[in-house]
């Protein structure tokens, strides 16, 4: 009996979701009177997860650098067989949507996707998640074992690694699932900041009117704040910003501390990708724009006047 955290990694380093999920798992395990274990695919430093609360780490060796959902599911299934967890936590990233449901089906168990909270109630872990593009929230509980939950990145605080070390168990696995091969990876234009895990995001909409304006008005504020840059679909469709920067139901889901929406109306599909942001700032010249109903702070004005001033004010901070 344990909570198994899938500690996702790339290029030998853990992603931020690993610390986030281990931190939450530690709190849930304390409430349940159980322990935390972790699953690692590839060669990331498994023992170091002890410093984030993992009592034992199950590591499947292999080259996972070319994303392959068959190998991921086969290796995770072997880890689950060795770890025998009651709960599995994983990030609600691509792997969480692509590989985890397949793992759940193999384990003949149910899954709660893209949770925005987890709690212990009646001796079990219960997830809270949104439905209908964020317009309703519901608790999801799972009676089959192990209960699988994926969690939206940036939902929980990331604990500091206290330097502890965990016992590492090497798990053998073999490939059995039909796979696809990667022909080519198309990396996005380098922006440097991964939107889905960015702590701050500055986004612009149709109102920017051109790529030049987007680049000269929105991006400098992003740079001043060291924020990720996002855009509405109207802006990406018009070519003001690349598609990989689209935020929303069909773009990326962001969950930052600060989201600044400049000249974005706040369509339901846009809100679906950013409404859980902690602080939302809306800059829009229409006082009735729906975005103001979700904003923490609003400025009713022309963004071409306000955003450059905001960039200056941020740059002036010590």
């Amino acid at each position: 009996m344990s909570i198994l955290v899938f500690a996702d990694s790339a290029n030998g380093a853990f992603k931020p979701t690993a610390a986030e999920l281990l931190g939450k798992a530690t709190a849930l395990a304390a409430a349940l009177g159980t322990t935390v274990t972790a699953a690692v695919l590839g060669d990331a430093p498994a023992a170091s997860l002890g410093g984030l609360g993992a009592a034992k780490v199950f590591q499947a060796a292999g080259d996972f650098s070319n994303y392959d959902n068959g190998a991921i599911v086969d290796a995770l299934a072997a880890i689950v067989a060795a770890a025998n967890p009651t709960v599995i936590l994983a990030p609600a990233s691509y792997i969480g949507r692509d590989a985890l449901p397949r793992l759940a089906a193999r384990l003949d168990t149910a899954m709660g996707s893209d949770c925005s909270d987890l709690k212990v109630e009646g001796g079990v872990v219960v997830g809270r998640r949104s439905e209908f593009a964020g317009r309703a929230y519901a608790d999801v509980s799972i009676s089959s074992t192990p209960a699988v939950f994926t969690v939206r990145p940036n939902t929980f605080p990331k604990p500091e690694n206290n330097g502890g070390s965990a016992e590492v168990v090497a798990v053998d696995w073999s490939a059995s699932t039909p796979t696809v091969s990667v022909v080519e990876t198309l990396a996005p234009e380098a922006t440097g900041i991964d939107l889905s895990s960015a702590g701050k995001v500055v986004a612009g909409g149709r109102s920017l009117k051109s790529k030049e304006n987007f680049d000269s008005v929105i991006r400098p504020l992003g740079a001043a704040l060291q924020a990720g840059v996002g855009a509405s679909r109207a802006a990406t469709d018009a070519g003001y910003a690349p598609h990989n920067e689209q935020v929303g139901q069909t773009g990326q889901t962001v969950n930052p501390q600060l989201y600044i929406a400049a000249g974005i109306s706040g369509a339901i599909q846009h809100l679906a990708g950013m409404r859980t942001s902690k602080v939302i700032v809306a800059i829009n010249k229409d006082p009735d724009a729906p975005i103001f109903q979700h904003a923490t702070y609003g400025i009713v004005a022309d963004l071409f006047d306000v955003v450059p001033e905001l960039t200056k004010a941020v740059e002036a901070l010590d």
Binding site: T179, S181, V183, P188, L195
Partner: peptide
């Protein structure tokens, strides 16, 4: 995929 990465894949 995540962070705007896209991949071309082939399979049977």
């Amino acid at each position: 995929m995540d962070a705007g990465v896209r991949q071309i894949v082939s399979g049977s």
